[in-house]
Design a binder for these strands. Structure first.
Ligand SMILES: NC(=O)c1ccc[n+]([C@@H]2O[C@H](COP(=O)([O-])OP(=O)(O)OC[C@H]3O[C@@H](n4cnc5c(N)ncnc54)[C@H](O)[C@@H]3O)[C@@H](O)[C@H]2O)c1
Ligand SMILES: NC(=O)c1ccc[n+]([C@@H]2O[C@H](COP(=O)([O-])OP(=O)(O)OC[C@H]3O[C@@H](n4cnc5c(N)ncnc54)[C@H](O)[C@@H]3O)[C@@H](O)[C@H]2O)c1
Lengths: 214, 214
DNA sequence: AATAAGTCGTGATCGTTTTCACAATTATAT
DNA sequence: ATATAATTGTGAAAACGATCACGACTTATT
């Protein structure tokens, strides 16, 4: 693949840039400056230029960036042309919300199947996504490399082991459990309760500072 | 409040430590080392010791940390004794999931009211939380300082302005819109589509590296 | 043509966060 | 008692990330 030179912080901003460039393109905008982008996505303009510069000289001095060119470039870089299939495990409150939401709108990611242990849920279809029995995980999941975990925390370790066994390489974990995986598996943890608590903590302890976390 | 000496990165880990210490305490564990904590929460042990050290010498050399003492200390530090009221705006897929979830379980945060524009939702109660008409925002929201935004992106700016007008100081924004707020308002952005895309990007471009994002 | 205004790309700097590594201290075993 | 093992707290270094600031170039204006 590409040279591993892109900082993680930059990589995390790429989808954001991509989405905004897409909007601009739909609006028929032909050029954009790092300053304009900065106002829109709330990232310092020097940071944006630096981010882009990891991919080469994409802009023109005195002019800015050509929206269509930049968009095309990022489309390739972010592999927007091929779809990544995802499996969702745990069709509860949160899982159901994700199934109803169409991640495809702006995006190359498709939740292709879901699993649950509840007989009332197994066999249903939510937002076009079939819900299978978790017992059949090993039969159904072939080829899927990314999983979203929205099961109770107590189930997280057991299910993770089975996913890893089946060749999953990335997990987006919404449970509060900090799961243990082999070195080569990437886990991204989104802990909504922690996010809320951290926000409240900041409000109480850093009352008037410059804000805007990321 | 406290001295603003605690790094933001540390502050974001505090809720995590707190939750895990709580578990240990319930299990009747009396002492814990930074190494054990590290294995559980997947944060380097030196980082944990450094984090704790910002609050003074909480442990004992050669022994570790006393669970009950540490827990009590963090309870105070994180203001776990007083409840923070939160308003949720937008009772759709995501908003409904949050209302059903009981943030109070481990936690000092309470979603006290919700707002929506849909007449079918206004007047209902979801998970004990009343859903008010967004038109009545200004009447009902007095005293609430934190809001969760789960409305369509197109509504985000308008609602944000009204929230700021009413004295909100912190916003947890789940919409893809990058909202504009005055300096003194803290916004934390959780962009689920971006998180997924970033995960997929990392899988493709950093295949075998040391993993585990945060 | 010449000048002014706008904008990129990047060296250098700065601030933050993580990690190393070890003296100091405590607990445990013999 | 003494020796051994465990573990903290932290100075120092390394890694990472954000921002400044400016030369080089492009476009627009007169
Ligand atoms: N809903 C929220 O707002 C919220 C907020 C923060 C964290 N979380 C976390 O997200 C996770 C999901 O939350 P939720 O509110 O959707 O929970 P939920 O109880 O509504 O849903 C969990 C689902 O997982 C299914 N399940 C249980 N065991 C399973 C197994 N072994 N295999 C497959 N499916 C199984 C259940 O049948 C259920 O449908 C939890 O870990 C929760 O702590 C949720
Ligand atoms: N559901 C997901 O999985 C998901 C994933 C990523 C991002 N998001 C984002 O989260 C937000 C909410 O997503 P969702 O799936 O819950 O959407 P949704 O359409 O299910 O819910 C939006 C809710 O907001 C209400 N609403 C609309 N305008 C309003 C207004 N002016 N005032 C008050 N309420 C109003 C609607 O009546 C509806 O109940 C969106 O911005 C979406 O892009 C959702």
């Amino acid at each position: 693949m590409d040279q591993n030179k892109i900082p993680q912080a930059t990589a995390k901003r790429l989808p954001l840039y991509y989405r905004f460039l897409n909007n601009l393109n739909h609006q028929g905008k032909k050029r954009v400056s790092s300053k304009e982008l900065s106002d829109a996505v709330k990232v310092d303009s020097a940071t944006i230029r630096r981010d882009f510069s990891y991919f080469g000289a994409l802009g023109k001095k005195g002019y800015g960036y050509n929206v269509e060119y930049l968009l095309g470039f990022f489309r390739k870089t972010l592999d927007q042309d091929e779809t990544t299939d995802v499996a969702l495990i745990g069709v509860g409150n949160l899982g159901t919300a994700f199934l109803h939401y169409n991640f495809m709108k702006n995006n190359n990611i498709l939740i292709k199947m879901a699993f649950d242990s509840d007989p009332d849920k197994v066999g249903t279809t939510i937002g076009d996504v079939p819900v299978y029995n978790i017992a059949d995980l090993e039969d159904k999941i072939a080829g899927v490399k990314v999983a979203i975990l929205t099961i109770p925390a107590s189930e997280a370790d057991g299910i993770t082991d089975r996913l890893v066994e089946q060749g999953i390489t990335g997990i987006l974990n919404f449970t509060p459990a900090r799961i243990t995986v082999p070195e080569h598996i990437r886990v991204h943890h989104i802990d909504l309760a922690v996010e809320l608590q951290a926000l409240v903590y900041f409000l109480k302890h850093y009352p008037l500072e410059t804000n805007r976390l990321e």
